[in-house]
Amino acid sequence: MDIPKIPIAQWVDKLEKLLQEYLSPLFNFIRLIVGSTVNGLESVLQWFPPLLLIVLIAALTWYVAKWRMGIFALLGLYLIYNLGYWSGTMQTLALVLTAAILSVVIGVPIGILCARKSAVQNIVTPVLDFMQTMPAFVYLLPAITFFRLGVVPGVIASIIFAIPPTIRLTNLGIRQVPAELVEAADAFGSTPSQKLIKLQLPIALPTIMAGINQTIMLSLSMVVIASMIGAQGVGADVYRAVTQAKTGVGFEAGIAIVVLAIILDRLTQNALRKKKKQ
């Protein structure tokens, strides 16, 4: 028997058209929110004189992580400034922070729902697998269709790629709260939300933070891809250098991304440890 080719491609195209036709007000709304968040963040970051901001970030890193990290941040950021990638790095930082913030805002509640209802978890887990394994270029196309070129589809693509760890680890963190503690909270007559706020979230926090850290790292890894659809920043510098086969320039821009990644990583990793010491 000859089974005809299953027209998945046509179905997806049709779905894309339908979504664009009926949900464009929603997409425009999202575009507005995301766009203004990125732009707002970027203009705040660009408003600071670069040298002042370098010192501020270095001081924050010193305070949160070790003093050696503070020195590293100072030197690393100054290197970025010196190489002339400051403005691009701030654009990238704005993109990454927006993606991270939105991932947390969306991901943590989904993670909580997963932890509460196994049915939700059973639906969400394969979707997350899909999001993480589907090559990012594939969903760049619909992102452009829905959100047009620019930084917004870049943020959306970053979120799709980077949100899974936040959801997974929020779910895991809450599920790992020892059963006897949950039982004790129940025995004293907690409502479900009291249990969540007073017990589960505080205890799951280190795990959730590990998820957020991963999310930030993953969205940083998306900046080059995002630059292909018009997101500005050091990612775009890397992309341009690659297309023009300028190894040296590519390396310079790459260093800027690495410095940014290390600082963001150490900041999020140590944020809790610092708090616990106090």
Binding site: P178, E180, L181, E183, A184, A185, D186, A187, F188, G189, K198, L199, I203
Partner: peptide
């Protein structure tokens, strides 16, 4: 009832 009338102490203490 749990809040007002009945308290509980656990084997492994279950302190937060």
């Amino acid at each position: 009832f749990r809040r007002k009338n009945i308290g509980m102490v656990f084997q492994k203490f279950a302190l937060f």
